[in-house]
């Protein structure tokens, strides 16, 4: 559905909404990627399959988002598209394919240091949709 950025003096905070968990996670990753590389237009030529596990749903979102920071620092990759994202609520495993490119070809500046647990709590709304607020340490 959507995401929007909210006021925070020192860091970056956004709120994301999704009609189901898969969509919520995708929206969160869009907000994160916008923070990292803004409106830089990527040539999509790298695909990366990822699998993330955690002990609870909030932890799964944290680890999923952290994967972007990890791949940027260790393999110099940035992404702007997520394919086939699947959150398995039972096993707490997430699988997805990230599509993007090598960061060295682009100019952008926002160094997201970390995802934080600051108020990170996925809310299950009455109509079956989900929302969450995430604070990024920048």
């Amino acid at each position: 559905m959507t995401y929007e950025f909210l006021e925070h003096t020192a860091d970056v905070m956004f709120e994301a909404k999704g009609k189901d968990l898969n969509e919520l996670f995708v929206e969160c990753s869009k907000a994160l990627n916008e923070t990292i590389h803004g409106d830089v237009k990527l040539v999509e030529q790298v695909k990366k399959e990822i699998k993330v596990e955690a002990k609870d749903l909030d932890g799964l979102l944290y680890k999923f988002l952290e994967e972007f920071l990890f791949l940027l620092d260790s393999e110099n990759l940035i992404f702007d598209k997520i394919e086939d994202l699947k959150v398995d609520e039972e096993s707490l495993i997430l699988k997805a394919t990230l599509v993007g490119d090598n960061a060295e070809k682009y100019h952008f500046t926002n160094d997201v240091k970390a995802i934080t647990f600051n108020n990170l709590k996925i809310a299950d709304d009455d109509n079956g949709s989900y929302s969450v607020r995430v604070v990024l340490d920048v």
């Binding site: 990890f70 620092d73 160094d111 240091k113």
Partner: peptide, 19 residues
């Protein structure tokens, strides 16, 4: 190992943001 993988290409680099 994850921390090391993130740091290895970054020795001697300034970074971004407020740096």
């Amino acid at each position: 190992q994850r921390a090391k993988a993130r740091g290895r290409p970054q020795v001697g680099t300034l970074g971004a943001g407020n740096h």
